[in-house]
């Protein structure tokens, strides 16, 4: 799999494009992203905020990342490897799902509701945390999920099913969340 990072050198933050590319290849292999995909990572280093999203176009994938998403929350403008792995894991699991015929046919990201995003993110991060043996921030994600699905026991049960789930389909995700 070919991974490219733009910009190739960073001026405002202490990031290393080569390191990001290596991490992305590593996470992609762990997640099971098809080898023949071309993955481009666009990092907006001027942007301290933390949004990140993926765009799939044929066999090429673009990950658009606001610089803050890869930044260590404890150290201004410094790179966080653990945080970057989590962001990549979340995005790449969703990419892998899209290329998995068994997963089904979810709408394009722009057409997803915030509740659907939260559900898919929980499912992705839960799998990544297990596979990588990493702390995926389960309670952080639970809070994000509750904001979209409600502060009640039913929402918590749905979150746990997603986080602990594997081999779910898009239809399963919608059913679990009663979307």
């Amino acid at each position: 799999m070919i991974v490219t990072v733009d910009p190739p050198a960073f001026a405002l933050v202490d990031f290393d494009a080569g390191r990001i590319a290596a991490l992305a290849a590593d996470v992609a292999a762990l997640v099971g992203v098809p080898d023949d995909l071309a993955v481009g990572i666009d990092v907006d280093e001027k942007n301290p905020f933390g949004k990140a999203w993926a765009l799939v176009d044929g066999r090429s994938v673009t990950l658009s990342v606001e610089g803050g998403a890869f930044e260590d929350p404890q150290r201004l403008r410094q790179f966080s490897e653990a945080g970057t792995r989590l962001v990549l894991g979340r995005l790449l699991f969703r990419v892998a799902d899209r290329f998995d015929p068994a997963f089904g046919d979810p709408p394009a990201d722009v057409d997803l509701t915030k509740a659907e995003h939260a559900a898919w993110d929980a499912y992705s991060l839960g799998r990544y945390a297990r596979r990588a043996g990493a702390d995926g921030g389960r309670e952080r994600r639970r809070y994000a999920f509750r904001i979209r699905h409600g502060f009640n026991d039913a929402a918590d049960r749905a979150f746990d099913q997603l986080w602990d789930g594997s081999d779910l389909t898009w239809v399963d995700l919608r059913r679990i969340c009663s979307l």
């Binding site: 915030k114 994000a144 904001i147």
Partner: peptide, 13 residues
């Protein structure tokens, strides 16, 4: 507000 896509992260921060 909850409308922000990063609402949970922003609230936690």
């Amino acid at each position: 507000t909850p409308d922000r896509s990063d609402a949970a992260h922003a609230a936690r921060q």
